[in-house]
Design a protein around this nucleic acid. Structure first.
Lengths: 66, 66
DNA sequence: ATAAAATGTAAATTAAATTTTACATTTATT
DNA sequence: AATAAATGTAAAATTTAATTTACATTTTAT
């Protein structure tokens, strides 16, 4: 699962910790998702996309292994 | 988490079992997600939306409790 | 160059998604 | 009306997401 979280965070100029707080998860969870370590739940993915005022499909992209 | 899976299945005229097979999960998983019992992983949500040739945000909608 | 902030990571635990098996109920077909 | 197909559901087991704590490394600010 590829994603544009790092880029969108840079645009908003917020840290992983700040994003984590906004979507109510731990900083490590944001770090892991941003690094593509696993697929978040759909609810979390939608909340993250909403923070960036983008759709899920604009932020996340499926890969073969998913 | 609300969703339009039932409607989109009707449009495609496919069963829960058929959808399950297409996205490689069990029929019970599709049944539970369609009934809104829990939030699927983002990867699964994206695969389901892709089957209907729609974006995730067109198929799923966040609710307060999510 | 130093200190502070941010990010990366890892192990152990908890919470939640998904599978499997199995059966009951509802809906469609003949 | 009878049969088959589809859907609903439930418990137990497994897998995966997410938390917590803790520390190491990298980046940014002074």
């Amino acid at each position: 699962m590829k994603n544009r979280i790092r880029i969108e965070r840079a645009i908003l100029n917020i840290t992983q910790a700040e994003l984590a707080e906004r979507v109510q998860v731990s900083r490590q969870t944001i770090n892991a998702i941003e690094a593509g370590k696993y697929s978040p739940t759909l609810a979390l993915g939608m909340k993250i996309a909403a923070q960036f005022e983008k759709t899920v499909n604009e932020i996340f992209e499926l890969e073969e292994e998913d």
